[in-house]
Amino acid sequence: LTYASQRSAINSRPSLSVDELKREWPFLFMKKFLMQHFTSLTGIELYERLRECIAGKGRRVLQFFKTQLLRWTKEVKTVLADIERLQGENMDSTIAVILLMMTFFKEKDDAIFLLADRFHPDIKKWMLCVEGKVVIQSVNPQDDFTSALAVFFASFYIFNLEYQAEAASTLEFIQRFLVRINPENTK
């Protein structure tokens, strides 16, 4: 019901900071309502689309890289070896594909991911940071990496943010290949 008012607050000039928006629209900063806002904006059920896409294409992307091993840089080979090693250990294939693509595009993983506690890298909780501030935290232990990726990707569209230059290729890959948003005349 408040979608139109939220859009007009986000698009207002001079623009509000994300912090100010959060004060005005606290519900928009809860995962459920943020994802609903993205669906109203784009017509896409983002979490479902990412899950389907990774289930379908993820294994084929890994195959694409594995079958042409000699072509890749040392860094890509290292990531592929790590993925191979972790394959039996319930590895999240969304993480595998994103890290592999970041390495392939020669982008550093810290252009998207910051480990909050580097001594406990296995903790599965995540937070989303915008303009240097934490704006959403996962509260449900069921929230997987794909839900973090969905919230992260949705925030660019919802808050009119530009992709950061350090991760621009990976983000455009996510947009076109995984989410399948291909604006016309930009082939």
């Binding site: 084929r60 076109r176 930009t186 082939k187």
Partner: peptide
Amino acid sequence: LNSHVASFIKEFTNYDWLN
């Protein structure tokens, strides 16, 4: 469209189609 992304998608699509 970022040319790195475009060439990856093109190559992958060809590979995927052939395999």
